[in-house]
Write a protein that binds this DNA or RNA. Sequence first.
DNA 1: ATCAGGATTGGCT
DNA 2: GCCAATCCTGATT
Length: 197
Amino acid sequence: MILPPEFYARDTVTVTQDLLGCLLVHQGKGGTAAGWIVEDEAYLKGDPAAHSYRGETKRNRVLFGPPGRVYTYLIYGLHTCVNVAMGPVGTGEAILIRALEPAFGVDLMQKRRGMDDPLELASGPGKLTEALGITMDLNGTSLCTGPLQIWSPDSLPDRRPEGWPGEIVQTTRIGITKAADRPLRFYLKESRYISRR
DNA sequence: ATCAGGATTGGCT
DNA sequence: GCCAATCCTGATT
């Protein structure tokens, strides 16, 4: 089943861990594709590394809306990254989804990425958006009612992500310069589908 | 109006 | 390991 609004209306770090093993599904142009979430990061209130740190702007305004909405942004003029807006209205917290294990629509993901290796299809924040066809027009849509959704792994008992349920590893976040020491990155220890750098 | 820099990736040394 | 690609946003002049 699709994760309900109540799932997101909880502590951000808790939800960041609970999202591991859940299925990110996108019903987009060209078809549907999905992957298990195996790596993600939390960006909190008062966090210098968070896009919301300097207050609300045109770009980050969905972060300050209700939890459970999609926040997308363009990085390095090349790649789209996808987040879940978190915290009560006005808080501006977020969860960055960093890596997926391909699960459904793998052929479509391969076509979009222009490569075959399942280990490389969605093992990074820019890779996974390309593989699922996630673009900036999804910014602000609801994960509970929109074309991009997150499903509970318990509702799909026939297939399981590698290493789930299992040990969750917590480390520092990747690719940031501010607040680089905060341990807010989480991933499934036994998964081979984690981002490299 | 201008400009520095970024929650990345892929290719080359 | 190093570096270019590529462009939008936010801060500054």
